[in-house]
Write a protein that binds this DNA or RNA. Structure first.
Length: 328
DNA sequence: AACTCATCCAACCGCGGGCAT
DNA sequence: GATGCCCGCGGTTGGATGAGT
């Protein structure tokens, strides 16, 4: 199947998108709807590969995207879902209707992962001084744990099947969680949650007018010297290993989570060309009017365990909240 | 003020699945 | 079944920016 990469062609522009390109792309998608990305560059005249167009749309221009300022609830959900699903960012993003998988992935890699590992280190170092502490659930036998897991799973299944509703987002409060979020993000993302594409574009332009591009090359035509960056190459499930696999596998095996997920993607979340959500499932379109509360209750409950560097099983939220009351 | 280092995040890359032929 | 195309996903990169010295 040795298909050549689509972006190897001559004359394909790379690098940051300009507002003009954004406008062209948005106006095209507004007219034709998302999809058939292969045709987008040729029909719009954009010197971008189809993949780049799709990425720009799904991660930036698509309506309904909330940027920056992850709320407490969002953080908790990401932590729990990551523990449950692993680095399946798209699946995680499907539970956070306003967030892109890329955004969540970045937030995890740059912020949450460090936060959690820091807390884990604190926890494990303290555990070293506590004799006889072998588990966060010392009084819970394996059988009890499994029963509890099944109960939780049942609860989650119930909640997911009947309760997913995008309205939950309105109940989420907006806090400045990230101390170093960019100023543009801070000014832009506080109020607008479901913005239209034109709003996205206008805010882009505003930002652009405030900070006109000094000299955006628009494409990396020169090969940069490869300086070895200190990027921490993350293996999957870096901080929350083996145990999570079991958990998610159990989740899947017990009641077919995969099928639920795929059904979300294929039926409930299918979109007409007029709908702007392309890869982002429109959670709860035809769901009952019971918001995330049940799911959240489960997600924010103490059932997700992780493993410390010493191999100890620790309930994540307990650990987080016990060790650091100001975590959220 | 100038420089270095750390962090953030938009965008790229490559892989794999699904589908059509 | 084999092949090719399209699309989505997760991992990674590198430029921009902020913080520290």
């Amino acid at each position: 199947m040795g298909r050549p990469p689509c972006c190897d062609k001559e004359g394909v522009k790379k690098g940051p998108w300009t507002p003009e390109e954004d406008i062209i792309l948005v106006s095209y998608i507004q007219e034709h709807g998302p999809g058939n990305w292969r045709a987008v560059p040729t029909n719009t005249g954009l010197l971008r590969c189809s993949k780049s167009c799709r990425l720009r749309w799904t991660n930036y221009l698509r309506p309904g995207i909330k940027r920056g300022n992850f709320t407490d609830n969002e953080e908790k959900m990401i932590i729990h879902l990551q523990a449950l699903l692993g680095n399946r960012w798209a699946a995680i993003a499907s539970y956070l209707p306003q967030r892109t998988d890329n955004d969540i992935k970045n937030y995890w890699n740059t912020y949450l992962k460090k936060k959690l590992s820091k807390i884990q280190n604190q926890s494990s170092s303290r555990d070293d001084h506590e004799e006889g502490f072998s588990s966060s659930q010392p009084s819970m036998s394996r059988g009890q744990w499994e029963r509890r897991l099944q109960t939780d799973i049942h609860l989650a299944k119930q909640a997911l099947s009947e309760a997913l509703s995008p309205e939950k987002s309105t109940s989420l409060t907006h806090h400045d969680q990230k101390p170093s979020s960019s100023s543009s993000d801070q000014t832009l993302s506080t109020t607008t949650t479901y913005a239209s594409s034109t709003e996205n574009i206008s805010r882009l332009l505003k930002s652009w007018m405030r900070n006109p591009p000094i000299k955006r090359s628009g494409g990396k035509t020169t090969t940069t010297t490869t300086t070895t960056t200190t990027t921490t190459t993350s293996s999957t499930n870096t901080t929350l290993p083996n145990n999570n696999v079991d958990l998610s596998e159990a989740f899947e095996s017990l009641f077919g989570f995969e099928s639920f997920e795929s059904s979300n993607n294929n039926s409930d979340f299918s979109q007409s060309p007029d709908q702007d959500h392309e890869s982002k499932p429109n959670i709860g379109n035809n769901a009952h009017q019971l918001p995330f509360s049940l799911l959240e209750k489960w997600l924010f409950d103490e059932t997700v365990t992780t493993t410390t560097t010493q191999g100890k099983e620790v309930v994540l939220s307990d650990m987080i909240l016990d060790e650091n009351p100001n975590f959220f």
